[in-house]
Amino acid sequence: MVTEEGDGLAGRTVIVTGAGTGMGRAVSELLLARGAHVAAVGRREAALRELAAGAWGERVEVIAADITRPGAAEDVVAAATARFGTVHGLVNNAGLARFAPLEAASDDDFERLLATNVRAPAALIRAALPHLRREQGAVVNVSSVGGVLAMPGRSFYGAGKAALNSLTRSLARELAPEVRVNAVLPGPVDTPMWDDMGLDAEGSDALRSGLLAATPLGRFGRPGEVAGWVCGLLDPHFSGWITGALIPVDGGRTS
């Protein structure tokens, strides 16, 4: 958001996980368009290199990493600060979705959900905290409406996102006033994650149809529609008095 004080993101450094595709890519591109530096984190280096090959490449640091690996959070922050000197913002966007009824859900999937959607964001916040405190920075966690809605057949996923919501609100109080912590809760958004849910084509089609029918605005969201809210919550000029917020960006799904 550009205000009379100028763009509050210009010159700031933001770590974005899951930056290669989908919402993370949209967030990264909007940050770069607004003058920020982006430490782009993801498992697929080729997609990150595509981002760095664009018009803003000199302001992109590519960090190919599995954020669930022990020590990954510290490595990511070290790489970002080695390139840009500090960290002003963190977007915990990387996520994993696995849907199954309780009888068919695997313990391994549950562990992977928790590792990606809860433990890794917490580890990254902790690793970046000295910089975020010094810079009066901000964290935005990309959660889901699944963390606030009852979702039969998706209970493990919803439990992980509910934990991320609780982490957001608790850390907003714990880290105030130096660091703001908020979350956006997207509804169904068209991203490549739909191809990585462990569902067959019939199951994926049925899921999409059900979500569409339950969304009052009658369509899936676009990554850029979520990115605008993420960047707004990072911008100290626009949202400097907002912390602990869980903001649905969901086409009315939670209304």
Rank of each mutant, 00 (worst) to 15 (best):
V77D: 01
V184C: 10
R12L: 15
E225F: 13
W56Y: 15
R173Q: 01
V91F: 13
P192S: 04
A33Y: 00
I67W: 00
S170R: 10
R44I: 06
I67S: 02
E103D: 15
T3H: 02
E135C: 12
N165W: 12
V145C: 11
F220D: 04
E74T: 15
N141A: 02
L234P: 10
A227D: 01
W229N: 04
A19F: 10
T81Y: 10
E58Q: 15
G146K: 02
A105F: 12
T3Y: 10
A80P: 05
P192W: 04
T254L: 08
F238G: 06
L9I: 09
L185D: 04
P216M: 05
A214I: 01
S155A: 15
M193D: 05
T86M: 04
R134T: 13
F84Q: 03
L234Y: 04
S106L: 13
L233V: 08
L114Y: 13
G11S: 11
M1W: 00
A36H: 04
L129R: 10
W241P: 00
P177F: 11
D196W: 03
A40Q: 09
V77S: 08
L185G: 04
L114G: 00
R112C: 03
V118D: 07
V184I: 15
E174M: 11
P101Q: 05
A213P: 02
H88S: 05
L51I: 09
L96H: 14
S204K: 14
I15F: 04
T86I: 03
A201N: 12
W194A: 08
F84S: 07
M23P: 09
V14M: 07
L167G: 13
G6Q: 08
M23A: 00
G57L: 12
P130D: 05
L246F: 11
E50A: 15
L171R: 08
M151Q: 13
A64H: 06
G24W: 10
A183M: 05
G210E: 09
T21P: 01
F220C: 09
